[in-house]
Amino acid sequence: MTDEKRSLRQKDFWAALALMAASAGLLFKTLEIPFFQARAAGIADGKWYNSAAIVPYMVFGLLFVLSVTLLVISIRGDGLPTRADLEKIAAQARAPLFQKFCIICLMLLAYIFGLVPRVDFTLATALVMMALTYGFYEGRMRPAILSLILVLLPSVYAMIVHFPSEQWAKPHDDDIVTLIGFVVLVGVALVEAIRTHGSLPGYLRYVPIISFFTPLLLVIAMAFGFHQNVPNRTGLLFSQIEYHYYVTLKPLLDGRKD
């Protein structure tokens, strides 16, 4: 039994417990779906065999059985955590790798749930791309934390001020906050990197440009090249791009045609 295998079995132990809890919870939730008196919905008679709950019972029941089996396998494979293992787990939670994982997850969640629905796509993406690259390029902890703070501030602001979906398309104050966040992050990155290394690392010369222009080009290509819908058409930058595309650029191009 190698160490790697044992640590895998330990993970299996916890995963099995989580799966058991999840499948039991979902089985409980399945009780809400009518079973023996299945709602008929126009089908002549609601019997158990055409109930919407039958396959879920099978699936989650089987999942429960399999997770119990997994638990048994993990315990047989010496996966039952000892006191020392528990302490090791606690130590791992404080280790940089796990903290970085949490930081990435928080950034992704803030980006998708906070920024993308409410803030101009270019600004939101520029901020997050800059944060991810700067935060994780060198693998140091300080850039990661600084980036996280500067992503969270605008997202939390946008979430608090414009939470309901009716307000997503409305005012632009959160767009401006995000823009400020991006500019500040670029500034902080440059200053922090120069103070740490004594000079500006090569990658930071072009990362802000990539971060800003990648989403800008993407959104323009998507909207006007591929004719697809894009997030937040009313966003600070995009509404202007769209306006000038039709009012300034299009007449120019059309004028040439006539």
Partner: peptide
Amino acid sequence: PQSIFLPVVLALTTI
């Protein structure tokens, strides 16, 4: 380097 192209992939995936 992957820490440059992965954020680009995030933007591509999102849009």
